[in-house]
């Protein structure tokens, strides 16, 4: 241990000290400015209560705003990425299809999504697609029906409060449609990285295009693109903040709510930032650990 400290100390240069001092001064100045000039009172004591609160009736600790939001964010992200991988795989296959029309349609979808700001895409998907779909399929009343039932624990586990099911589901659909374009590009790159000989071998066994994809090309392609897919999953978590705009009650939405009731602007947003950071950073650490050679079944 001593040795380690010693070696770190040896590598430090006087410049490092200067850099750290400048940074401390800078943030200290901002801290003081916020306190003095904005007359801002830090109330960090509020935050824990908005994570968990004690429910007097049920006599136990329950999740409050922030943790509720976090749980919704996690739920939405998991479902959206599953859906995005399915759609993205189809899209990736369409991008390399023999049929020109299919290829063009996939390309159009991708280019539209790539060249429109995400917020606009989200609104378009929501108003033109998701909301119509939910009304058409009568999902609203169906979800209310389940919410009224006694035995809805399984539903609640997967989707939280069933009265908000339509909102969650549109969040999932919108996010998945948005991310599927990027997953599609990753999958396409994976498919194109598979040597031509694989396709020829599959074909000379008499396989159809579907069988060739299903048993030969996709299993290899998806294994190849697992690392970028994992990164895309982290991107999706960050992008999910955007669906607060269509009133999905996830972490960012709850933070806005918290700010408007408590006025603890800095505390709320710093806490939310920390929660996103911990979630994304730990996932990224986990993925890079799994990717290490010799870890995952690298063949």
């Amino acid at each position: 241990m001593n040795n380690k400290l010693h070696s770190i100390a040896k590598r430090l240069h006087w410049m490092d000290g200067v850099i750290v001092a400048v940074l401390i001064l800078f943030f200290g100045y901002i801290w003081v400015q916020i306190g003095d000039q904005l007359n801002y009172k830090w109330r960090w004591g509020l935050i824990p209560n908005y994570m968990f609160r004690y429910d007097e009736e049920r006599e136990r600790w329950v999740a409050n705003l922030l943790v509720q939001g976090l749980i919704t964010t996690i739920r939405v992200c998991i479902y959206a990425s599953i859906l995005a991988v399915i759609l993205g795989t189809l899209l990736g296959m369409a991008r390399v299809a023999k049929n020109l029309t299919i290829r063009m349609l996939a390309r159009t979808y991708l280019e539209i999504l790539r060249n429109i700001p995400p917020v606009v895409v989200i609104f378009i998907f929501f108003f033109f697609l998701s909301e119509q779909l939910i009304t058409a399929l009568n999902i609203e009343s169906w979800a209310r029906g389940i919410a009224r039932q006694e035995n809805n624990a399984v539903w609640e586990f997967f989707f939280g409060d069933m009265r908000r099911f339509p909102s969650i589901i549109s969040g999932v659909i919108v996010l998945a449609l948005f991310e599927s374009a990027f997953v599609g590009e990753i999958v396409r790159a994976g498919i194109e990285a598979i040597p031509r000989g694989q396709q020829e071998a599959a074909r000379s066994l008499g396989m159809s295009w579907i069988a060739e994809m299903r048993y030969i090309i996709l299993p290899q392609a998806l294994r190849k693109v697992l690392p970028p897919l994992a990164n895309q999953f982290i991107s999706l978590i960050k992008d999910s903040a955007i669906i607060s705009l269509i009133s999905v009650q996830e972490l960012t939405y709850k933070a806005v709510e918290l700010v408007s009731t408590t006025r603890a602007i800095f505390e709320a947003w710093i806490s939310v930032a920390a929660m996103y950071f911990v979630l994304c950073f730990s996932l990224s650490m986990l993925f890079s650990y799994l990717e290490r050679p010799g870890k995952a079944a690298a063949r």
Binding site: G197, E200, A201, L205, G206, Q220, R299
Partner: peptide, 28 residues
Amino acid sequence: AVRMEVGMVFQQFNLFPHLTVLENLTVG
């Protein structure tokens, strides 16, 4: 129909790397 009756062996083998030898032989 023709490909089922015509076996092909390539210069570069083109075995399926994600399948075991036995699976390579049974997938067709």
